[in-house]
Each structure stands twice: as structure tokens, then as C-alpha cells.
Lab assay of single mutants.
Amino acid sequence: GMDVRRLKVNELREELQRRGLDTRGLKAELAERLQAALSGPSSG
């Protein structure tokens, strides 16, 4: 899988935006949010 901790802030935001998620917050928050999205149930 993707290691969200290795991504830069702008990369985290890009991935979040692609999934329609909130791109605001600290890098740690963005990484946590993206990780949750990646490990969560895949819809679609």
C-alpha cells in the first residue's frame, strides 16, 4: 500500500482532494485522514 507518512503535504492534499476529502489541517492530520481512507472500506 501507500505510505502516507512519506508523502509531502501537497501530495497528501492531492490524494485527499482526489477522494473528495478535506484538505485542511496539519500534515499529521492529512496523513491520518488519508490513511483512514485507504484502509477503510472501498466503495464503488
Rank of each mutant, 00 (worst) to 15 (best):
R18S: 05
A31R: 14
G25K: 03
R18T: 04
A36D: 06
L21S: 02
G1W: 11
P41H: 13
L21P: 01
A36K: 12
R19W: 05
G44D: 11
K8Y: 05
L12I: 07
G44A: 12
E14A: 15
S42F: 08
G44F: 14
T23F: 07
R19H: 05
L16Y: 02
R18P: 01
L38G: 02
R6L: 11
R19F: 05
P41G: 13
D22W: 03
R5Y: 13
R5V: 06
G25E: 02
A37G: 03
T23N: 05
S42G: 13
L16D: 00
L38W: 05
Q35A: 12
E29H: 06
R6V: 07
L30T: 01
E14N: 10
R18Y: 04
R13W: 04
S39W: 10
T23K: 05
M2Q: 07
S39Q: 11
A31N: 03
R13M: 07
Q35S: 09
S39M: 13
L38R: 04
G20S: 04
K27G: 05
L34K: 00
T23Y: 07
K27A: 08
A37H: 09
L7S: 01
L12G: 01
D3H: 09
S43Y: 12
E15V: 04
G1I: 15
L21E: 03
G20D: 04
L34D: 00
N10I: 08
E32M: 13
L21Y: 04
E32I: 11
L30G: 01
A31V: 15
R24G: 09
A31E: 11
D22S: 14
G44S: 11
A28L: 07
L12T: 00
Q35M: 15
K27I: 09
L38Y: 05
Q35H: 09
A28D: 10
L34V: 02
K8W: 04
L16P: 00
G20I: 01
M2V: 11
L7T: 01
V9K: 08
P41V: 13
V4K: 03
L21T: 02
A36Q: 11
E14Y: 15
V4N: 03
G44P: 12
S39A: 12
L21H: 04
L21M: 07
G20T: 00
L16R: 00
A28I: 07
L26D: 15
G1F: 11
L21W: 01
L34N: 00
T23M: 04
E14V: 11
M2S: 06
R5N: 10
E32A: 15
V4A: 06
L38P: 01
R24A: 11
